[in-house]
Write a protein that binds this DNA or RNA. Sequence first.
DNA 1: TTGACTTATTGATACCTGTCAATATATAAT
DNA 2: ATTATATATTGACAGGTATCAATAAGTCAA
Lengths: 100, 100
Amino acid sequence: MKVDPVLFAKALADETRQEIMKCLCCVWLSVNDVVDALGGKVNQPTVSHHLKKLEEAGLVMVRQEGRQRFYTLNQEQVTVCCGNLIQRFAPEYGKKPDCR
Amino acid sequence: MKVDPVLFAKALADETRQEIMKCLCCVWLSVNDVVDALGGKVNQPTVSHHLKKLEEAGLVMVRQEGRQRFYTLNQEQVTVCCGNLIQRFAPEYGKKPDCR
DNA sequence: TTGACTTATTGATACCTGTCAATATATAAT
DNA sequence: ATTATATATTGACAGGTATCAATAAGTCAA
């Protein structure tokens, strides 16, 4: 799934959302787990809203289980998108010294 | 100069700003040069506004020359910030297969 | 000094978005 | 069926921001 670099940046351009991503790094959490992990900073609808944004950017994966939905960070997507940014804005960095 | 990952993402989270970054990739341009390069999409004050944002995020370098100010993309900063994002959100990607 | 040029700043406006309260939807348990 | 639980959606509101027109500030030329 190819992701627009602006969409990717927009998804990252929020403090709370980056905290959520941190929580979901390398582990599957339900929505309420995330709410708890944030320690009452925001409430459940807000977390759902952020998770939706992250999902639209392809940054999280979802797995339904009973009445819960488990999310985890898509680390490959993060890596790919960051690589795309470097490709786009620093293509020859490290190659042509005269460019700097 | 250490850059906050949220600030970095915010700087990238705009279509016009990414276009400006593209223009400034590997070349020094005056403000009016950037305005022209964008082909009348936005006017001069708007470009100045965006350049200020990019400067605050450490993504561009500035050089004064006469009455003009020349900007260029700081490719090293882009590379470093992207590396930081990967470090933060995909630290062990490619190392621990059990993590995926 | 005056005028021309380049860029930054200010004020106004419209749009976007993060947040919450309330509610809806869906699923499981009894 | 009814109740409880988990999550998503809606509506409202406040704060942020992208944009422009107008103006200011700084610099060079004459």
